[in-house]
Design a binder for these strands. Sequence first.
DNA 1: TTAAATGCAAATTATTTGCAGAAGC
DNA 2: GCTTCTGCAAATAATTTGCATTTAA
Lengths: 154, 154
Amino acid sequence: MSPRVSKRIYEYFESKGLRKTSQRDAIIEAAFSTTEHYTAEDLLAMARALDKSVSRATVYRTLPLLVESGLLREMDFGRDHKFYDPNYVDHPNHNHLICLDCAKIVEFEDVHIDTLENCISKRLGFSPVGKTVRIEAKCDVFQSTGACARRKSA
Amino acid sequence: MSPRVSKRIYEYFESKGLRKTSQRDAIIEAAFSTTEHYTAEDLLAMARALDKSVSRATVYRTLPLLVESGLLREMDFGRDHKFYDPNYVDHPNHNHLICLDCAKIVEFEDVHIDTLENCISKRLGFSPVGKTVRIEAKCDVFQSTGACARRKSA
DNA sequence: TTAAATGCAAATTATTTGCAGAAGC
DNA sequence: GCTTCTGCAAATAATTTGCATTTAA
């Protein structure tokens, strides 16, 4: 985890009067030491690798704090559990393309989408706060060769 | 429900060898006689108003069929239950703007978004299948007057 | 006639919560 | 010392499923 992220998190905690505990430290460290998306259960496993005393309840109680801090983003990919994305710290405007062949999620950024959505919001009489773009797509590689290099990584 | 929708649904059912039952008729009628978004529980109530014998289990078993047919769209608004949107039949490319002040969902269409997403997908080496755009925003009306005409309708 | 569909109630599963003890400040 | 935080285990709530019965084709 970068010192920048660490600083922002602990400043947020302090501003809210939240205490620093060893369990929260482990959860935070785990949450921001990867660029992968993860579930609450995944995060529990990652945090426990750092500190065995972390419980499931504490993970579920800490996740909303990280989301409120603005450093972690909760995402619904339409599956049965929520996913969390730690990459908004470094890429605040990224979007997701989900490959229906290999289930891989590709992150991308595009200034035009952002501009366009701002215009649309204004036109409708709103000020945009958060934007989500999700593209479900199929691999061109898979289409032509019948196999996809990414397919192994679900 | 328009005869066009009715025709498409029953053709889909027939093509899959699915039977026509009074309960399914009631659920389908309820599902496409509104332009509002609804939950499974909402749909149960609406279908029961037409046919008291409709059970919760049948609603839950029928919903995926309607989604697979392409006429109904399942949506995650990040709340604890799924929402269903029957408006894709008439507006296959619409998107959603969610007002954080009044929780109202505004549907809009924009060809530029669609074009842009096609370009982005191609550039990344994918063929887009489905696209979701969601804008979370705040009422300009609410910002300036402190109240919002839509606020009453949650 | 026979395979599919139904209602009921029990099962499932991610997430939340009450509580008594532990720990930060 | 007082309040917040924690782990545990039980509770919750949307959705799914097994089964005996009904019904469409």
